[in-house]
């Protein structure tokens, strides 16, 4: 069965790019547009990896990471945060919240796949 990945981003462009890249590599991809919606998806579906943006309305990425790590079915699911180049402090706060690693935006498809491979090989 293909690995299932949830991508969380309020930008449709970003979601499209992530989804396209991952589907092309044989992953099954779910989407959510903010942290709250992501929690909704996670409550009903087991995924193998979560990729989340930081800056989102309703619930930001760092809070989402904290929520997921706090307990439940996905407490030990790998989580990658999407950050911009200038986001060193965001990287740190995401990491402190329990994120597994990060991907720097903008990204090349190969880079995304290589990072995903490091935490959740296909």
């Amino acid at each position: 069965m293909p690995r299932k990945i949830l991508t969380v981003d309020d930008s449709r462009t970003m979601r499209d790019m992530v989804t396209y890249t991952l589907k092309g590599a044989g992953f099954d991809v779910l989407e959510a547009e903010d942290g709250v919606k992501a929690l909704g998806v996670l409550a009903s579906t087991r995924v193998d990896l979560i990729i989340t943006d930081i800056n989102m309305p309703n619930m930001d990425g760092v809070t989402l990471v904290k929520r997921v790590r706090a307990g439940g079915a996905h407490a030990s699911t790998p989580i990658l945060i999407l950050t911009t180049e200038s986001g060193d402090d965001r990287k740190a706060s995401g990491k402190a919240a329990g994120a597994t690693g990060w991907i720097v935006k903008p990204f090349a498809p190969e880079k995304l796949l290589s990072v995903v491979n490091k935490v959740c090989p296909a």
Partner: peptide, 22 residues
């Protein structure tokens, strides 16, 4: 940073989405 290397069709589609979103 390396630039994305999506195919030109996809890139055009992503770009359309991007400007809609903008």
């Amino acid at each position: 940073m390396s630039t994305p290397t999506f195919g030109s069709d996809e890139l055009a589609q992503f770009r359309r989405t991007f400007f809609e979103e903008c």
